[in-house]
Amino acid sequence: MDSNSHLESHQGGCHCGRIRYKFEAPKSVTAFKCNCSMCSKRGNISFSVPKHNFSLLSGESYITTYSFGTHTAKHTFCNVCGITSFNISRSNPHAVSINVNCVDPGTLTHVEILSFDGRNWERTHYLRTKMKEAQLRGDKDNSSNESSDQGYEVGSDVSNSLPQSH
């Protein structure tokens, strides 16, 4: 998420509607499709917002949390319909990851999807961190050399395939 972008109010929730939340984010976001053992099985595509930009509106008693491995990630889901509409990711535990497919239609206008190599999480996280450090230093040559090996690649614009009301 670009911190310089204008923030808009968005809402989302699970399939049965018991869990509802609101968050502040730009209208255009970059989401990640991860291939780790958890995300690949649930088909999760998510983007992160700072925790202070997220508010649970309803359904706290319906949230179940599953964690494994380092227990840093908190995989939350509705204990009625089973949908993971948001979670706390291992790569950014100080933010809330929003499942792009659970955002109410009409407020997100563009979603860029990048693939993230979560099966090789440590290596991918290390390369992404090094690339961000190089970008902050203004070392464009170093960041472009690593870009083909950074653990993610550009996907497609899915702004026309965002979830619609049924």
Rank of each mutant, 00 (worst) to 15 (best):
S3C: 06
N4I: 05
N4T: 15
S5M: 06
S5T: 09
H6D: 09
E8P: 01
S9C: 08
S9R: 13
S9A: 07
H10N: 04
Q11T: 13
Q11S: 15
G13L: 09
C14K: 03
C14P: 02
H15A: 11
H15F: 11
C16T: 10
C16S: 13
G17A: 10
R18N: 11
I19T: 04
I19F: 04
R20C: 10
Y21M: 09
K22F: 08
E24D: 11
E24Y: 13
P26A: 06
S28K: 12
S28E: 12
S28H: 06
S28D: 05
T30A: 07
T30K: 08
T30P: 01
A31E: 07
F32E: 08
K33N: 15
C34L: 07
N35V: 01
C36R: 08
K41W: 00
K41R: 15
R42E: 13
N44L: 15
S46V: 00
S46W: 04
F47N: 03
F47Q: 04
S48K: 02
V49S: 01
P50A: 06
K51E: 09
N53D: 12
N53H: 11
N53A: 05
G59C: 05
S61L: 03
Y62C: 08
S67E: 05
H71N: 07
A73V: 02
A73K: 07
A73S: 05
A73L: 01
K74T: 01
H75T: 05
H75N: 12
H75A: 04
T76M: 02
F77V: 08
C78K: 01
C78T: 02
N79T: 00
C81F: 03
I83N: 12
S85G: 06
S85P: 03
F86R: 01
I88N: 02
P93N: 05
V96C: 09
V96N: 04
S97H: 04
I98L: 06
I98H: 01
I98Y: 00
N99P: 05
N99F: 08
V100G: 01
N101E: 12
V103Y: 09
V103H: 09
V103K: 06
G106H: 08
T107G: 02
T109Q: 03
T109V: 03
H110E: 03
E112L: 10
E112V: 01
E112H: 09
I113G: 11
I113D: 14
L114I: 06
L114F: 15
S115Q: 08
F116S: 03
D117F: 13
G118F: 15
N120V: 00
N120A: 10
E122V: 10
E122T: 13
T124S: 10
H125S: 04
Y126F: 10
L127T: 07
R128P: 00
E133S: 04
E133T: 00
E133L: 07
A134D: 11
Q135K: 12
R137V: 14
G138K: 06
D139S: 07
D141R: 15
S144T: 09
E146L: 15
E146P: 00
Q150Y: 00
Q150H: 01
G151T: 03
V154T: 03
V154A: 10
S156E: 15
S156R: 09
D157Q: 05
D157F: 00
V158C: 09
V158I: 15
S159C: 04
N160M: 06
L162F: 12
L162V: 02
L162G: 01
P163N: 14
Q164L: 14
Q164Y: 10
